[in-house]
Design a protein around this nucleic acid. Sequence first.
DNA 1: TCCCATCTTTACGTTCGCGTAAACTTTCCC
DNA 2: GGGAAAGTTTACGCGAACGTAAAGATGGGA
Lengths: 131, 131
Amino acid sequence: MSEIMTIRQMCAAFDVTPRALRFYESKELIFPERRGQHRLYDRRDRARLTLILRGKRFGFSLEQIRQLLELYEPGGTNRTQLSATLDTARERLNDMVRQHAELEGAIVDLRQQIDEAEARLSALTSDKTTG
Amino acid sequence: MSEIMTIRQMCAAFDVTPRALRFYESKELIFPERRGQHRLYDRRDRARLTLILRGKRFGFSLEQIRQLLELYEPGGTNRTQLSATLDTARERLNDMVRQHAELEGAIVDLRQQIDEAEARLSALTSDKTTG
DNA sequence: TCCCATCTTTACGTTCGCGTAAACTTTCCC
DNA sequence: GGGAAAGTTTACGCGAACGTAAAGATGGGA
């Protein structure tokens, strides 16, 4: 895996479409360099894309993810900007903690429902074989 | 809270709109009774709505949620139907378990980023007060 | 040099999950 | 009995996150 990748290589590596990558760029979530007209993606772009896809799996909107990505940018933010970025980041963190907690209960619930349904299924099946 | 509720009472209780409730019904996720033209929601409807909203928070589509809700219906499913329902339910469960695990890492990550950003912020602030 | 593969922009199309009128019944209650 | 309130259906609209088709630029290799 070379330091710099074309759009095709990115798509293969992350299982996304070129359209999606250009779309994320148009929404200012990634900023690949250009050689002529062509886009070139480096390590930083890949790191950002990893975070984008993870955020999507958690159900965050691209705009929420964009705000989170600001947190990872070292440079040029002033106090008020950084402070606002931190505020929204703390909200996302709360979302994630809540989600994590609620998932535990939901997993237990669903497991029980599956167990019960499996019992019903095997009852049905044995009905057939013993009937 | 009475046994049977009107659409308005449901909306107030669950913080959803009438449009959303009718939409879920059109997608066959809930089946309120009718008194004349009006819809009436009972305990079973409320239980289903609770699961619907929970599923939404986990990022599931209404169609995925509808399939999950089939698991909670006691009656009229035959073997093949129940077996298929179980298969998709196990997939959802896997989704949730994966999500739960991934959330732990992401939470740790985000906490660290927030900590670092807080450090940068207080550095900036003390720069100002000490400069 | 020419051609094909790969990239590009532009722009309209699509699915999901509702929002939002518009026009009509139905019901409540005084 | 007579409104106003609350409910109903029908249908068009909308934002998010891309899909997809069209048409042009570019670069590489026989």
